[in-house]
Structures are given as C-alpha cells and as structure tokens.
Design a protein around this nucleic acid. Sequence first.
DNA 1: TAATTTATGTCAGCCTCTGCCAGATGACAA
DNA 2: TTGTCATCTGGCAGAGGCTGACATAAATTA
Lengths: 201, 201
Amino acid sequence: MGLRERKKQKTRLALIDAALDLFLARGYEATTIDQIAASVDVSPRTFFRYFASKEDVALALQADALDIFVAELSARPDAESPFTAMSQAMRAALATVGHNDEADHERFAKTCELRDRHPALVAGQARLMMAHEQRLLAEITRRRGADDLRSHFVLALFAAVARTCFEQCGPGEIRDVAALARRLDETLVVAGQSLRPGWDE
Amino acid sequence: MGLRERKKQKTRLALIDAALDLFLARGYEATTIDQIAASVDVSPRTFFRYFASKEDVALALQADALDIFVAELSARPDAESPFTAMSQAMRAALATVGHNDEADHERFAKTCELRDRHPALVAGQARLMMAHEQRLLAEITRRRGADDLRSHFVLALFAAVARTCFEQCGPGEIRDVAALARRLDETLVVAGQSLRPGWDE
DNA sequence: TAATTTATGTCAGCCTCTGCCAGATGACAA
DNA sequence: TTGTCATCTGGCAGAGGCTGACATAAATTA
C-alpha cells in the first residue's frame, strides 16, 4: 500500500474521530462541517470527498461493520438456512469489530453513544441497512430456492432482530462490543422461542 | 369550522397535490420548494409553515394514515394480543383510507408510486414509523403486562412486516389501497405460519 | 528528472431551512 | 358596523449542507 493510500486512510480516520468528538461534545446538529474540517486542518470541500454527508461520517463505522456482516454472510455454508446464516454472520461481524485495535473499538462505542443521544441517526442506521437490502434478499432467495413473499418476511424479521439489538439499549447500558454481542444472543433466544422450526426454509 | 381553518386545509391539500405532481413529473430531487410554492401562489416561507421539510410534504398522507392507525390501535379491545391488535388496527386504517373521497385516494396512490421511484423516501417512511414508536411500545407493554426485550421484539417485527407490505410492491403492481390491503393479508398469513401461537404474549 | 495521475484548496453558487418583523386577513365583541 | 385582537402571510437576511469547475500541489511511474 503506497503512501498516498496510507494518507487517505489517516485523513479518513482523523475526520471520523474529530466528528465523533465534536458531536458528543457540542451535539450533532450544533456541529458544522466547517468545524470538523478545521479541527483536522482540511478544507470543507475535502470533507465531502471522503463522506457524502454529515450523517455519513457519524455512521461510518456502522457502515464498515455492515460491510463485514455482508462479507461474512456469503462465507457461511450453503447448508445453513437463511436466518441461521445471517445470525451467525452477525455474530462473526461483531467478533471482528471487537477484536480490532483499541482505537477502532473506542470509535464504535462512541458511535453507539451518539446514536442513542440523537434519534435522527437511528433513521440513518435504518437507511444503511436498506442499502444492502437487495443483496441480502438475493442471498435469502438463493438459500431458500424460492423468490416469494416469505423471503421478504425472513429479511424483515432479521432486520427486526438487528434493530432490537442495536438501538434502545438502556440508559448508558451498552457501551462495548461484547455487551452488544450478548444482547444479540438474548434477542436470538427470544426469536427462537417465537418462531416455528423450519420457518425460514 | 371557520373560514380560516377551511382555508388552511385547502392550502395544505393544494401544496400536497402540487408537490406530488411535480415530484412525479420532474423527479423528487429536481423539484425545489420554490417551484412547489409558486405553483400554489404561496411564498416559500409559507410552505415551511405547513411542512417541516421537503420530505414531509411527500409523505404527508402516509403520516395521516399512520395517525389513523395509532388511533385505531387504542380502540382495539384489551383482550387482543399486541400483534393481533396492531394487525387489526392496520387493516382498519387501510380501510379508512380506502373509503375516503376519491381525491384522497388518488393522493395516496401517487405517494406510493413516488416512494417506489425514489428510495430516499423509504428511509423517510421508516422515520415516520419511528416517530410513533414510543407510543406503540407503551401499548405493547400494556397489553403484555411486561416491559422486557420481547416487547421490543414484537414492535420491531410488526414494523418490519409493515415495511414488507408497503414497499417493494412489484413494478407498478400495487397502486390502490385495496391491493395494499390484500398484500397485508398475505403477509400476515406468512407471519402466522412462521410464528408460534402466543409468541407475543 | 519528466510526465502522468490523483488529491487538495479555492471559489462561486444552489437549495433547504430558520428567525425576525411588518402588513394583511379572519375572529369576535361592543 | 366598527374596533380590537389573534393569527396567517410575505419578504428579507442569513446559516448551513452540498456540488461543480478549475488551478495547484503532491505522489506515482517511467
């Protein structure tokens, strides 16, 4: 990886860090792009070459985690039913994020706190999920061997589980990835108790 | 109802109609607030006294329908389980919209078409749902008599089912409220087949 | 070192959205 | 009918998000 590429990664992370810190310190809406750019010594125009929008930088790490999830999903064995495969992929994705370097871990925690404080970002998180929806739906129909309403239902149910995990964590309760993984397991237990065996095949 | 109130209703509907028509004709992003306001002979400043944002006017009817849904929900008998009550309330809300005057019906159809064409609005629809989330959650916990993870799961699942119905209707397939109601029934059948009896109690 | 590619800064500008104040219009009582 | 009051509207100024175009600076490659 050349110098140019390394510089870009560094600038990107610096922008994310500056943004998260400013958002948490002054509030999301009260922080301007100019302030973020200034605190990294970069022109505002450059900010928009790294992130498409203000929301984008706030949820950058969530987007990364989602990419990992999608990658893990296609690595799951074909024998697994759609919902099982997605559940396992989500576990694997959380494990990956949790085992990264400390800085990344902290960024993720800050993103969670920020999302809890500013409900506007929850909608953005939903939008992220929707961006990958087509790919997930394709994976579900592939594993089920049928393209019908049930595939949509499976997708919707998994989205429901994911949302239940990631948002509305109690007041300051969930701050690290391990706790998030635990909550995922709890939610999957509830889902398992609620669903009939073989419902997603 | 006085003259002032009538005028306001008229302006509101005129703005919605103008917005929907312009959005469908030129595209959502290509249409500016100034154009909408001009075609109703109203100042741009006034537009924002009726709608908080551009997205707001595009989804105004969906918001109205959601309000009806919430009202219907609290009218459901206490004996019904949370998911059943929400399902029935949704049926009732769709029936109400379907039996309104013709103009309203057409506006709703236009909103659906617009949402299908511009995925950005789907996220807005999710945001609408989330705006009522606290109230729905309270209703669920009231009916279940418990405030735990399962209540969140029931809420998320219903939200997901609603989304499955309302979006990704095939290419130009669903254009009137009756078809939408039919699709809701189909989806609820799939949900019924997948979930264990009493899962939401 | 020279040529090519790519990232950044600057500038100009559109659009969304808000606060503020003055003028117009409907509501209501004398 | 008329005067008073509450409310709606228009115009203005401005902040902030975001984009296109062009020139400069830096890194890559030969």
